[in-house]
Design a protein around this nucleic acid. Structure first.
Lengths: 233, 233
DNA sequence: TATTGTATTATGTCTGCACATAATATTTTG
DNA sequence: CAAAATATTATGTGCAGACATAATACAATA
């Protein structure tokens, strides 16, 4: 008696997941090969493959050619988190988004920024510091450096009505980037801007992007105290 | 003259990415349908579909039946990050991992934990507090509550030689969970445990897991100051 | 024995075709 | 004219069969 009928790849995935969750297949175990599973489930191998690939992407299975497929020893390792545009994030909380430019300066890259991007120290860059508000409460302090030569037309944008990130996202695509999350104590300046007490713990995102080998931006996002980034597993 | 020959789905993906990055297709634009692209690239529709689905998963494209496929307005929104087992994370940094149990108690769920998990306050639970070291420096303070009835055999495990997370991951699979990242100031107790100054900003992960509808664990991971979580985009 | 070559095997991917499904566009109907 | 029925269209998914590729096992060779 079959509890669940198996037709599509999603049901194959569900059945395989069930066997993992119910410990019929233990972590580290080799699971039957695709041909056998296809026969057992009465579907084509391509269908099994689709399901297994999906589970491997999710981190539940580990697959290697010839070696076969085995249940991952550590099924918890991948979390996909969405990095929203600040305006949308604020609005999604039912608050009004507002944005203020604190500074906008065309200058050359300071050493820290230049070395981070692998650029000479005299590279002309645009430095933009701004504050995002949610219902007139400070929400995010953004400190951004943009490689002017990598982003055509950026000098003509005032960023008064649109946020730099949003403009860049739509006008300066990048091929690769890295992002890191950390915690920091607010400096006196940050505390004042974010209306927090000095030393309060804040969540910080540092992001750097490149277009091919050309550095585009480096930005530090300092969120007001209490910010949480959340995702489902 | 074609610069790159198109054979597999990866090259289709690369070519589509190129068109997005080089702004041949602008954010919001509708792109040609699969049949047309398949003909243009000289591959089967399934191959185009594979490539497009992959790009949609990555957040670069948005697809809807009948409506077609368009370039995402916000190509930056998904970052996949790996949540490693602490032991491996420490060892990967070339340090020696060590682990000490601070407390191990079978008791009933306190209100905060019970409500978070949706359990009655008198549910029997296992409370484990422990410290992870990297080269004898405190690395992570772990405060964990486990629903005893959801994890068979947990009462017999001492966790002296294996970390609770690692044991659970291999012995108590879960079907869903959620995870959140935030920053916090150390309490006096945490500061002492982590050998940090009181109030230092620390990176905190809160994770809750369920097996179907049954809550399994809730855990708070407090990393020593300076911890960064990093990923590529 | 150590190394190199060869067969085997499981996954990776492609093709061509078919039908399913969801969302939009169009026509019919009250 | 508005609401309901129907057609159209692009993506979603299925199948069977084929060949490609990587990793392993095993045999042959120096």
């Amino acid at each position: 008696m079959k509890v669940t009928e198996i037709n599509g790849w999603q049901s194959v995935k569900a059945e395989v997941m069930r066997r993992i969750v119910e410990r019929i297949w233990l972590p580290g175990d080799l699971v039957p090969n695709e041909v056998d599973l296809a026969e057992e489930f009465g579907v084509a191998r391509a269908t099994v493959n689709r399901a297994m690939r999906d589970l491997a992407d999710a981190g539940l299975l580990e697959r290697r050619r010839k070696a076969g497929t085995r249940v991952a020893l550590n099924p918890t390792r991948k979390a996909t988190l969405e990095i929203p545009i600040t305006r949308l994030e604020v609005e999604q909380r039912g608050a009004i988004w507002r944005h203020a430019i604190l500074e906008r300066e065309e200058t050359v890259a300071p050493v820290v920024v230049a070395s981070r991007l692998g650029l000479p120290v005299d590279t002309p860059m645009l430095h933009v510091r701004s504050l995002h508000y949610a219902n007139s409460h400070p929400f995010l302090y953004e400190d951004r450096w943009v490689n002017i030569s990598a982003v055509k037309g950026i000098c003509d944008v005032s960023f008064q009505s649109i946020d730099a990130n949003e403009w860049l996202v739509q006008n300066a695509t990048f091929t690769r980037g890295d992002i890191s999350f950390s915690a920091a104590n607010t400096t006196a300046q940050e505390a004042e801007l974010l209306e927090a007490s000095v030393g309060a713990a804040i969540f910080v995102i540092d992001r750097t992007t490149w277009n091919g080998d050309i550095p585009v931006t480096v930005v530090r996002l300092a969120y007001a105290p209490g910010y949480r980034m959340h995702t489902d597993l």
